[in-house]
Structures are given as C-alpha cells and as structure tokens.
Design a protein around this nucleic acid. Structure first.
Lengths: 333, 333
DNA sequence: TTGAAAGCGCTACCAT
DNA sequence: ATGGTAGCGCTTTCAA
C-alpha cells in the first residue's frame, strides 16, 4: 500500500509528530532530523493524504462549481477564470454540469456540501428560490453567476448592462445609422434583457428623429437570431443596423444575411453582445460588447476566497468594466 | 456547527453505529428506530461528511481531469463526456488546467494523487516521459487523451485517423476534384499528422492521374491556416479543394478565401478535421471529419471506472467510429 | 437488531 | 526540539 506518515516515522526513527512538523514546516525541527525525514519521504515516495488532513483541519481547499453546460464557450471562459485564480490560492475545482435541470442543480449543491467544499459558484440560467434556502443553510461562501438575470439576492459579478447597451447604440448612431433595430431575447421579469433594452431606448430617445425598432426573438440561440432576421429585413423601416442582445442572435442574423445575399457591413451593420469566442473568428468579425467572462470568473472566486479567509467583505454585486469591441460587422453608413 | 453522526445518535437516543446503518442501508435496523433516526436527520439537516467517509472507505469518488485549456471547445466537449458519464457512477470531477505547461502538469498529477482521486484523465498536447514514471508510481487508473499524438504507452481512446483522412480524400475525389491540396500541421514524430497524411497519400495513390499537393502550416491554429492559404492559392497547380488536418486550419483557410474574394465552395472546396463547434456555425458550414469528442471523454472515464471496479480490462487503445460530416464547404466541381 | 470500540491518516495540543 | 496522544467524522468488526 501507499506509505503513510507512520511508515515514514518508523523508518526515520522519529515520532509522527516530528514528521508532521517537517512536512508542514509548522514547528522547528533540528536540521539533521529534518534531513533524515526528508530522505525517508523521498525514498518511500510518501505523499500526505489530503483527505485525512482535511478531516482534521476542516480545510478541503475545494470549491464547487456548478455550471449549466461547459459547451457554452462563455461558461468555459468563466470556469477558466475561476480555476486559474483558484489555483493561485491552492484551491481546486469540483465541477458539476446541470444542463439546465433545476433538480440536479439542487442535488449538486447538496453533494458538494457533503464533499466539504469551502465555497460554491453557481452558474445557471435562471433564479430559483429553493437554491436560496439551501445555500443559506450551508452558510458557505456563495456566488451566483449568469448572463440573463439580475438579482440582489445573491452575491454576483457582472457588468453595467444598461450602460453597455447605451454605449453600443450610441456608437451605431455616431456611425450615422438612423434606423437601428434592436433584437431582444425575451421580456421576462428580472431579465437582463430589460436593462439592455433600457440602454438602447435611452440612446434612441436622446437623439431627435430616431425611433425605436424593437424585435423580440423567440429565445437567444443562433437559430432564433436567424429566424427573427427575416422579420427585420422584411419590415418597411429601412433598417441599416441591427443590434442584438446576444452574440448568438447576432451570428444567426449574420447567417441569415449571408444566406440571403445581404452584404455585411455594406448593406447592413450588425452588432452583438458578449464577445463569445466565435464572434472574433466569424467573417465578418462581429462588433460586440466584450463581457469579461474570464475576469468575472476570476473575481467571483476571489470573492469567495476572501470570504473564506474572512478578509474584507465586498458588496453583493461587483461591477466589472466592459468594452465596445469594434470589428468589421459595423460600418459608417 | 454542522451536525455530525454523533449529534444524530444522541438526539435519536441510539448509537452512532445504528445511525451509520440507516444512512448506508448496510445492515438491518428495526423500522421504528430507522424512522426515528430519519426524523432526527431531517430535523438537524444532517449530511454525512464525505471526507470522513472517504478516509475509512478509501473511496473518494473523485476523478482527476487535467486539461491544457478549457477554452478549446474540443476539450470542453471531452470534459462534458467525462463529467456526465462520471456522474452516472457517482464520480465527481476535479479539474486542473495546465495551459500547456509540463511542470504544472506534473504538479497536478501529484496534487491529485494526494487528494486521493481514484483515477486520472490527462488531456495534453504532447507526450512526456516524466508523466510516465509518475503515473506508474501512483498505480491508479489512467487515461491519456490527445488530438495530436499517438502512443501505445498509455491507455487512450481515439479514432482511426489514417482511415478518416483516407475517406475524406476519397470523398473529395468522388466530388470530381483532381487537384486536392492537403494542409498538414507538422512533421513531428509520433504525430497523428503522419497517420492522417498517410490516409491522404493512400487515396491519391489509388487514383491514377492524381498527384499529391502537400502544404505544411506553421502550426495548427486559425492564423496558421490563414497564412498557408496564400501559398496554396498562389501555387500554379490549379487546386480546387483543400483538405486541412484540423478544423482550425480550415477556418483560417476559409477566412483567407473570404478576405480574398474566393467563393467557397464555388471556386474552391474546403474540408476540415475534427468538427469543433465553430465548424457547424461558420458560413459556409464546414465539411469535416467528426471526431466524437464527447464520446471519447465518455469512453475514457468509463474505462477508468471499469478499472476501479476491476471489471473486464479493455485493451490499451480504444478506437471509436468517426463520420464524414458533409456540409456546405465542399461541392462537386 | 443493537452497541462498543478500533482505526482510517493526519494535526495539534500537552508534556517533557 | 521531540514524543505521546486525543480526536476529526465516519465505517466496520466484534460482542452481546
């Protein structure tokens, strides 16, 4: 079997306390003995059992991360940020995918709690009151991340969505566009869509002569964008720019335009929201709002670790800066 | 503090053994006592500490997964397969990203071993002899996954790459193409590129009158594909189809063609390899070889779990079926 | 069917 | 500076 601290102690002719001291550097040990112990450790290939260690110290150095689907590139980016910063503080990530199912979400929360994670980051599309109760019971640091809803109920990190949509709309206006369509994904309550829409409306309102052209897609997928686009091109308000509330929608729009022989940006400009990976690969490259997914993940776990270490508490919602990523899909009229 | 088995025992007026029995269903317990215990568990919100449990049972239900970068969509797909099948057997995933660094790779191997994972899946771009030694020491189930090299040294799961390239080339030939360029990523030893190239060569050789047109890109990124494409279009052998050894290269090629006013597939056909997510989103949709990444991950962890459970041993290399994914980027000449 | 107790591998406290 | 030992929360003999 694998060597334990006992084996090391025996073979080195010292007590297990001493061995513990050298591997943890917790108390002074005479250099000869330390030397000897180190040798034995090397010889035996001894590796401390972190499970046993956790049992006594209560520190698992584990953070649970529950996601809907790693296949979403923005989620993968979030997890990258979480993981990388976590590692900086010696924390490991325990990963669970729900694929949107609320029951598994809850199940994983419990599972992670039993596995003694020191914190949980939940990335999910929708809010849930059950989660609320559950997480309060655990009383471990918790952060809730998502791209679709806003909430004050949970600690979260996000960007100022209204401002972002406002700036993008203004950018389009400055480019000379007078008929700017806005494609929203839904009208649900607490939806970030509402905030984004406000930004768009505000910009339109501030510019005399401009009117709102709002379209509601069925959802927020590429297909939904594709579908709504026919409505837009067939509407009689000579639209010259389409601003979509999600990159996925924008890519659907781009695809529709491509398939129907519209030139982008010559005939029509298209802007997205998010800057998912595909946005920069696609031709034409998508002008979009860069949501700093990696950073959001990084800040989220940083927040959790701070709370674990009982350092200064951040406020519930942390806002990160965004950027208007100007690329090829938008041009002057 | 959180309730322990002791608290439950005390409050239910039974021994901890009895409580253990009811939560594990390991031995018969009279139904009244079971009832009582269950009530107390519910009241206290007791959840067994999996760490303590692991310490005695030696079963952590943890599998370590070391990846280069979750940002690669194919890796995300692999991990999805790993995670989902893992969960079916109650296994959780401990995730580590190396970003290609060999030292961290090794560090994580050790870390995971100390965290008592029951198996390790390593997804990495290159082989390493140090890993070899390390993993033999641990003697826990191990699978090595990658897209670039072949090896008999480690258990792995892959597709028949030579056959895949052979079939794709044949498909192009059947489409009427006579001057088919092949874009390879490198000429390194043990590289899968060699196998793929063999497939291409074989197909060309079997068809009288056809000649090889092989181009070597600098690497396997989108940029590399973009770059090499100018060589191809400027060569004097009237190329009508380009078969790239990676989707990323193909997308670079597509982008170059787009930027230089070539029509795909009208002027030139382009085929990829891998079927990464972007391949199906892109316009034109990329014809490519579908590597079943999700399934590869799934089979990999299945193999590990089999080994943990000491079920029948698979052979070292498991081959999965692939598919020629016919889309819009390739057409009859 | 139930309970007592040993022990998993380790840390941390108390002695010396 | 070093050793002995209790105990972390649990499972698993062994007795009763």
């Amino acid at each position: 079997m694998t060597a334990t601290i006992k084996d090391v102690a025996k073979m080195a002719g010292v007590s297990i306390s001493t061995v513990s001291r050298v591997i943890n550097d917790s108390k002074p040990v005479s250099s000869e003995i330390r030397q000897k112990v180190l040798e034995v450790i090397d010889e035996l290939g001894y590796k401390p059992n972190e499970i046993a260690r956790t049992l006594v110290t209560k520190k698992s150095f584990l953070i649970g991360v529950i996601v809907t689907d790693l296949g979403d590139t923005y989620i993968a980016q979030l997890v990258r940020g979480i993981e990388e910063v976590g590692k900086m503080y010696d924390y490991d990530i325990l990963l669970c995918s729900t694929y949107g199912d609320k029951d598994t979400e809850l199940k994983f929360m419990q599972l992670l709690s039993r596995k003694q994670v020191e914190g949980i980051i939940l990335i999910s599309d929708s809010l849930d009151s059950e989660i609320d109760r559950e997480i309060k019971d655990f009383k471990i640091p918790f952060v809730y991340l998502n791209r679709y809803f806003y909430t004050e109920d949970f600690p979260t990190v996000t960007i100022d969505n209204a401002e972002a949509a406002y700036e993008m709309t203004n950018y389009l206006i400055k480019l000379g566009h007078e008929n700017i369509a806005y494609v929203s994904a839904s009208q649900e309550e607490y939806s970030l869509e509402l905030l984004k829409l406000d930004g768009y409306k505000k910009a339109i309102a501030e510019n005399e002569g401009l009117v709102e052209n709002i379209f509601y897609a069925k959802g927020r997928s590429i297909e939904d964008g594709y579908e709504i686009c026919s409505d837009i091109t067939e509407s009689d308000n000579d639209i010259t720019a389409i601003f979509c509330s999600h990159d996925e929608l924008a890519i659907g729009v781009l695809n529709y335009l491509y398939d129907n022989d519209f030139e982008v940006p010559e005939d029509i400009s298209v802007a997205g929201y998010g800057d998912i990976k595909t946005a920069s690969i696609f031709r034409p490259r998508l002008t979009t709002i860069k949501e700093p997914f990696y950073d959001i993940g990084a800040v989220a776990i940083r927040r959790i670790i701070k709370e674990i270490k009982k350092e200064s508490m951040d406020k519930n919602t942390i806002f990160l800066p965004f950027q208007i990523q100007k690329r090829d899909s938008c041009a002057k009229i």
